[in-house]
Design a protein around this nucleic acid. Structure first.
Lengths: 135, 135
DNA sequence: ATGGACCCTGTAGCTGCTACAGGGTCAATC
DNA sequence: GATTGACCCTGTAGCAGCTACAGGGTCCAT
């Protein structure tokens, strides 16, 4: 039987997570409490490794910790329809798209300000002018 | 002479800022301390209104509070060349562009996952599959 | 004098970590 | 057997940029 365990440092290296972050995930109940060694070290098993991997990939896809938590919960019930999963992912996508639209607008405005800057003095800088109203 | 003053609530309404946010800006030294009335109410003058307007527009353009602080400092010296202003704005633009690139990638990945979802059970959901490795 | 809208200070909460301080453990080396 | 050094432990505080109280005071109209 395979009953290998991992220290928190090994888990960190294996998943590209900082040790403190792993402890943080534990604290907020995202990662279950691992067994402890005689010297009170955390002893993780394979399921922990997988779960942490799941969390990391979810975060990489931009899901919030609550989103990840929900996805983890849903992924446990293998037989349920994935309607909910789909809904969460779509909601997240919509949010990403909103943010993209916002940032695109922002980029446009910034570019315009910067392009109009004639590199004179602050008194007639278009960037400052855009911020200070009356001048 | 025009020596009108504004209450914090009036300033809030005039600039679309929450009252607490104004007090916060004061606390971190972004907005100068206003005069006080007999009843210890803040009594703002026109320069405060303008300064807060500047801050808000800077924030709307996505500058950090430190960025805004720097821009405010620079805007005081009307005769200096606007090189520094330009540099700050360009650095910010570059950051916005990096974020845009990241989010665009993210959107692509999310769309792909969602498109591949066949709306079956969680067991063969592509979204979950992308997160859990082995399955 | 009473009500309601406004104001005050101070503190704690939010997200998602990160960074200590001040200690304990473990394996290897001298 | 003592010492190093890498690792681990808990607990707390900090970051940005607000936001939300609690527990009071003020001002003005009725």
């Amino acid at each position: 039987m395979t009953n290998e365990t991992f220290s928190i440092g090994e888990l960190a290296r294996a998943t590209g997570t900082k040790v403190e972050t792993i402890r943080y995930y534990e604290r907020i109940g995202l990662l279950p409490l691992p067994a402890r060694t005689g010297g009170n070290y955390r002893a993780y098993a394979r399921p922990h490794l997988e779960r942490l991997g799941f969390i990391r990939r979810g975060r990489d896809l931009g899901f919030s910790l609550d989103g990840v938590r929900e996805l983890l919960r849903l992924s446990d019930d293998r037989d349920r329809p994935c309607t909910e999963v789909d809904r969460i992912a779509r909601a997240h996508l919509a949010q990403v798209e909103r943010k993209l639209a916002d940032l695109t607008m922002l980029r446009g405005e910034l570019r315009q300000r910067i392009d109009q800057c004639r590199h004179g003095t602050v008194a007639d800088c278009r960037i400052i002018e855009a911020l200070a109203p009356h001048a």
